[in-house]
Design a protein around this nucleic acid. Structure first.
Lengths: 153, 153
DNA sequence: GCCGATTACTTTGCCGTCGTAGTATTTTCC
DNA sequence: GGAAAATACTACGACGGCAAAGTAATCGGC
């Protein structure tokens, strides 16, 4: 249970640091994540709101509001799906690509590189967290290729 | 960065499971934490709101609202500090003690025991998370006695 | 012992998240 | 092919968190 409390605290700290770093860009970590998925996890910079909801593991209502704000900041645009009138796509704008690039540099510099774990420690941490997540019911299919040493070996 | 994302996800999963478990008690994990501190980290079941804010590492406004709700549910009572008129104490009620006991049993059964890590793995996870937290600027003085094997050994 | 600084709490406003309910559009199946 | 089920999004209300501003009480230096 101390381990779980520790997870909670680590989350709180990283979220706070990330939001501090992103504040100059008028972004939050949640909205940064949306932009990041659009840029690096899609072929043409657009994803359906449904897909975003699944990838980020938040409810559709959360995505609706996030896209509202991102659209207000002209970082994404809603475009209708060509074949299914039920779904709407979020497409990142040129401005969005520029901002997410700068934001990523800032996050790498100020947050991710602040962690002093060795590669091996980082891998151990990831492996242990993955076990915990699976126990808690996470869907990890998408991540399997990132962590070949789990379950196997 | 995959490790940090993994921390975020693990947090999300545990919080969701804990809140599911606590829903029948009309509690959330945040409010449960307040009750738990009052019961196990104080001599007489009362702490100042300031102390709660520091222990739980949330802003005073968050504590104010949490105590509002707990007081509304008759699980704690606000009582004035005997010597300092600025501070108010939150004191757990008999009803609060009863509820937090049942809630703890439920959490242990449904959430904490769901983690299948060995004692050694648990310890490793805790140690790695502690390093990460320190790098992220956490204050860990209060925890030193809980983790004698960090740094040493 | 007074005035300024500090401390403790509350209030307000914003954000992200959830749960629930609603609407519109497919899709499925008789 | 038309009704029922499933799907995708939106709307609303609640909650926990932060930041900033306000209020009240205490402390400290001169």
């Amino acid at each position: 249970m101390a381990a779980i409390t520790s997870i909670m605290r680590a989350h709180q700290l990283f979220l706070a640091r990330a939001n501090d770093t992103l504040r100059p860009f008028d972004l939050t970590y949640s909205r940064y994540e949306v932009l990041a998925w659009l840029v690096w996890q899609s072929d043409d910079g657009s994803l359906s709101l449904k897909d975003l909801s699944e990838f980020l593991q938040v409810t559709p209502a959360t995505i609706t509001k996030a896209i509202d704000r991102l659209e207000g900041a002209r970082l994404v645009r809603r475009v209708p799906h060509p074949h299914d009138a039920r779904t709407t796509l979020a497409r990142i704008t040129a401005r969005g690509r520029r901002v997410v690039g700068q934001a990523t540099d800032a996050l790498n510099r100020d947050v991710f590189e602040a962690v002093s774990l060795s590669d091996e420690e980082m891998h151990d941490l990831f492996r242990l967290l993955l076990k915990v997540r699976v126990d808690a019911g996470d869907f990890v299919e998408l991540l399997d290729d990132d962590i070949p040493s789990v379950g196997a070996r």
